[in-house]
Simulated scan of single mutants.
Amino acid sequence: MNRRGFLQSTGAMALGMALPRQLYARSTLELGGARIDMVSDGHLELPADMMLENMPQDELAEILARYGLSGDQFEPPCNLVLLRDGPRTVLFDIGAGPDFMPSAGHMLQAMDSLGVAPQDITHLVITHAHPDHIWGLLDDFDEVMLPNAEIMMGRAEWDYWMDPDTVESIGAARQSFAVGAQRRLVEVEDHITLFEDGAEVLPGIHAVATPGHTPGHMSFALDAGGQGLLVAGDALVNHHLAFERPDWHSGSDFDLEQGAQTRLRLLDRITADDLTILGFHLPEGGIGRAERLADNRYRFHAGV
């Protein structure tokens, strides 16, 4: 047994004993000859004020109460999109890996429950280079996690994280994000294909620039079985404030105003085109739709 096989078998055993069965909960779409699974990588544990500090506090409290949110911590789920379509097995983002936080980084075990192994992945498509989205590029032994995959990433995002100045300019709170991204991207550089906004990165998968959360954040428009879908990444980072008040500045964004403008533009497109959302941090498996309300406000509805 090689080292990755050992990791998968022992990791699955340990995880099965230590964590609840909900870890493997997922949503599935069957669309013509394509199948989409939302694969759980676990969840994050984040200080709430990281996101909320710039928001109007009175209206904020009312919205959070309606969604049953209180306290100082958010625990958003992490949902990876797995598309199987004929000879292609495409993963969108690869999760947090073993080094970010204990509650996340469980993609291997969740994929194993689907009968999918790392070597089965033919393409990895990256929305952006935050830890919970790409630190899983390397395994516990710093070996490439997906040995047979072509890795696809927007050029603007690549340029930002690989710029030596980013480590110094990103701010002390996120400096480890930049160091971790550079270390991993250097290791997989030979596997990476870069693309621009609007590119058809794979047949039926088009890049949609959604900057603000990071400088080069990309979402992806999919046409599977005649149905329009959008892999949103962190352009829509939660199911409450990002929909109810997309115009508010979110502290989780690199560029606060650009992030807000991107949310407004994206939600307008989603509702106008009746797109199904595949969301990294959205609840109940991450699949849902947006309903347009009044005054640039929206509501997320989980399910197909």
Rank of each mutant, 00 (worst) to 15 (best):
H130K: 14
P87C: 12
H106G: 09
A117K: 08
H123T: 11
F100P: 01
D120L: 01
G105M: 06
D93V: 02
T127V: 06
H130P: 09
T127A: 10
V81H: 05
E75K: 15
T122R: 06
M111E: 07
V116W: 01
D72F: 12
G86N: 00
E75A: 15
P102S: 11
D72Y: 12
M111R: 04
V125C: 09
V125Y: 04
C78P: 03
D85G: 06
I94L: 10
D132C: 11
P77N: 02
V81G: 05
L108E: 07
P98S: 04
S113F: 10
L114P: 03
V90S: 09
L114R: 04
H123N: 12
Q119C: 07
L69G: 14
D112G: 04
R84K: 13
T122L: 05
L114I: 07
G95K: 01
G95A: 06
A104T: 15
L91W: 01
V116Y: 00
D99S: 12
A110N: 08
I121C: 14
P77E: 02
H130M: 14
D93S: 05
R84V: 04
Q119T: 08
S113R: 13
P118A: 07
A110H: 03
D93F: 00
P98Q: 03
A129I: 14
A117Q: 06
A96I: 04
M107R: 10
T122H: 02
A104S: 15
V125M: 11
G95V: 01
I126P: 05
G97F: 01
P102H: 12
R84Q: 10
D85Q: 07
F92Q: 04
F100A: 04
H128Q: 08
S103L: 13
E75Q: 15
M101I: 14
D112F: 01
N79V: 02
D99Q: 09
L69E: 15
S70R: 14
P118R: 08
P98F: 01
L114M: 09
G115Q: 09
T122I: 08
D72I: 13
P118T: 07
D93Q: 01
L82K: 00
G97I: 02
P87H: 11
H106R: 09
H128E: 06
M111W: 06
D120G: 00
T89Q: 12
G105K: 02
S113V: 08
F74E: 08
Q109P: 13
L114Q: 02
Q73K: 15
P102K: 12
V81D: 04
M101H: 10
C78R: 07
Q119R: 08
G115K: 06
L69N: 14
D93A: 04
R88M: 13
V81R: 03
H106V: 10
